[in-house]
Write a protein that binds this DNA or RNA. Structure first.
Lengths: 204, 204
DNA sequence: GTCTATATCCCGATAGAC
DNA sequence: GTCTATCGGGATATAGAC
């Protein structure tokens, strides 16, 4: 019974997913305002008006992409952190997850980071909260390591900004057909993050 | 004589400068495609059509902003580098100049880094070359230090990307009325850059 | 060089048939 | 839910008076 209901809804969710996927790619490469609803719909194999059956506006599609993307990112960061006691291990694992996600979802990451000025005021508040939680995840890992004496940083906020900048920008320069694998990028990124929180003069 | 000629041209150059300044601010905060030529012209105190007396198109204004901005940045980086022998000092001075410029020209830096997809193909080639020269400046400073044995990095290209990401993103989070002065940001950034190229385990 | 007025085009969103 | 057709608005760029 529930199976037949699911089958009944499949075409709808399938088309919704195609619209979101097409919008993500176009927003990432051309930008939100340079993308037309015709671009999105035709890339998803539908007419222009079909978009409005599934979403009330183009901006709502952007909001959905940003919110679900950042919450997915927060999920992998939380999962990487949980249950790890050592401060260095914990920060390295969070950093690794952060880098992997940005290398694997370059279009989604670009939209969720560089198209936010097109959001409405209310939607921006929600997305900003997601971003603050990501910041907090990194900063708490750094400050925990400082209290344990494992890390030495001048300013945990500025260090957090720098770590996030390095990681999010992976989505702008990483190419899956390039010189590096996702793992190589993630390993190097995690190593650089650890250097940022370690005093070179005071190595143990 | 030449003075009177200069005076004769002053209103023209004055209005051109006002248009570019208004466009830079609007492109930075709202984005190129969300900015109308009316936004630019009226912010500069002129009618909408006046823009086309000075520039052939809105995209040409963007191109001018990006090209002159990046060449100015290259200028301060070259000036910071020249005549410094020690690899650590040289990289730190380049980094410092990079951070100062991004903290002092946040709107210009945002446009020159995040609005490039709106450029025409030909203009993009020129701007891309400026960006490659900036990359090369950092990378050469890093590789020189590696050859001297002062720096240890896994991959000079990826480290260069990370340093540039950290620095350009200053333009997105720095507030001149916030907690830090430009000098504090630049000092911390230069220190983080040096950590990125220094092996914590092998400190001298 | 600056203005007002306008040509030309295209976009987001809606209406209504099927 | 998807389509075709269209409305209403606003964009860039140009024309022509001053």
């Amino acid at each position: 019974m529930s199976q037949s209901v699911a089958l009944q809804h499949e075409p709808q969710t399938h088309n919704r997913a195609r619209l979101v996927a097409a919008a993500t790619e176009s927003f990432a490469s051309r930008g939100f305002h340079a993308t037309t609803t015709r671009d999105i719909s035709t890339a998803a194999g539908m007419s222009q008006a079909a978009l409005y059956v599934h979403y009330p506006s183009k901006e709502d599609v952007l909001y959905l992409i940003c919110r679900t993307g950042l919450e997915e990112l927060l999920g992998v960061m939380d999962q990487a952190r949980d249950g790890i006691d050592d401060a260095g291990d914990r920060l390295a694992r969070i950093a690794r997850a952060f880098a992997v996600w940005h290398a694997q979802h370059t279009a989604l990451a670009k939209v969720a980071n560089y198209e936010l000025s097109a959001l409405t005021a209310e939607h921006w508040l929600v997305v900003r909260d997601c971003r603050h939680r990501i910041e907090r995840c990194f900063r708490q890992a750094i400050e925990a390591g400082m209290q344990q004496g494992a890390f030495t940083v001048v300013d945990s906020h500025m260090t957090t900004f720098s770590i996030i900048s390095m990681g999010t920008d992976i989505a702008r320069w990483y190419r899956s057909d390039g010189s590096w694998t996702v793992d190589e990028v993630a390993d190097h990124y995690a190593a650089m993050v650890l250097r940022l929180v370690t005093d070179p003069a005071g190595a143990s």
